[in-house]
């Protein structure tokens, strides 16, 4: 049977992809950020996940305002890196796991989550930057990916509670897939940042770290944080952190902390990273 063995949370700031692509990951600015991912890169090499359910959001790359799906799952065979206005990142294509993706999609719909199904799309920095952070610069990504795109741009975005519940449903779906697969779930985006208006540049290390605390152990307090609190405390784009709750929900009632990292700033954004595993 397939099983979710671990969860990873990570920011997905586009500038991190630029740093990787331009070989700047150990300079004075980026060094401290990337050092916090060294543990994870080694751990991933040992863990060798078969598939990653990668929760992220599209940033006006694959989707424009014509159609705004709240939760969408990629069921395709492969995805190309998107051209975000300066040419596509020179990273490997992303290989899907169509069998597992379709199984999860069907299971979620039967479990009352009305998913949008995507067969073809390009994937932007929201998905490829976390791959670079966790896997470095291989010739091919070492795991297959099930992209799960969340609307965190047009309000109302899904509630934290709904995201957590979706994670729980994903875990049930994975557990009923007959093939023996080591599946991880990654929640990406955040942490605190605001990219617009006179309040742009807001960061909140104290709040971000309390959020990280709330992902560990038995508490489910994070699922009840209302949108307005993310907005007030972590900036208008900090709302991306609801995507981490899909990851956390999928890990079950209790988690154990394997690794944690926090750094300010990367461009406009606070970098947060956590690795968790389900605990009994």
């Amino acid at each position: 049977m397939a099983r979710i063995t671990a969860g990873v949370g990570s920011s997905h700031v586009p500038l991190l992809g630029v740093a990787v692509d331009q070989g700047k990951t150990r300079d004075d600015y980026f060094g401290p950020i990337f050092a916090g991912y060294d543990w994870t890169r080694e751990w991933e090499q040992a863990e060798k996940p078969d598939v990653i359910v990668l929760v992220y959001n599209d940033h006006a790359s694959a989707f424009d305002m014509k159609i705004v799906p709240t939760f969408a799952i990629g069921c395709g065979e492969r995805y190309k890196p998107a051209d975000e206005g300066w040419g596509p990142r020179q990273v490997p294509d992303v290989e899907g796991h169509a069998d597992l993706a379709w199984h999860i999609a069907q299971s979620l719909i039967l479990d009352d989550f009305d998913m949008t199904i995507i067969n073809e799309m390009d994937v932007d920095h929201g998905l490829t930057v976390p791959l670079s952070m966790m896997f470095g610069t291989p010739d091919a990504w070492p795991a297959k990916i099930v992209p799960l795109a969340v609307n965190v741009v047009t309000y109302p975005v899904p509630s934290g509670n709904r995201c957590w519940a979706l994670g729980e449903a994903i875990a049930r779906a994975v557990a009923s897939f007959p093939e023996d697969l080591n599946v991880q779930i990654w929640g990406t985006g955040g942490m605190s940042h605001q990219l617009q208006g006179p309040r742009a540049g807001l960061l909140n290390a104290e709040w971000d770290n309390r959020f990280l605390d709330m992902l560990i152990g038995e508490t489910d307090a994070a699922r009840w944080i209302p949108h307005i609190e993310y907005l007030r405390e972590t900036g208008s784009e900090g709302i991306e952190m609801v995507m981490w709750l899909i990851m956390r929900g999928a890990l079950g009632a209790k988690t154990r902390l394997l690794h944690r990292h926090y750094h300010i700033p990367c461009s406009n954004t606070a970098i947060g990273h956590i690795v968790l595993e389900p605990a009994e």
Partner: peptide, 28 residues
């Protein structure tokens, strides 16, 4: 750059904005 464009929405110049970010960002 994203950061430079974002800084035009604040009451700061880009160098001022960049320094603010390096010093921990804008407090809530």
């Amino acid at each position: 750059s994203f950061a430079e464009a974002v800084s035009t929405m604040t009451d700061m110049t880009f160098p001022e904005y960049r320094d603010m970010m390096l010093n921990g960002g804008r407090s809530p």
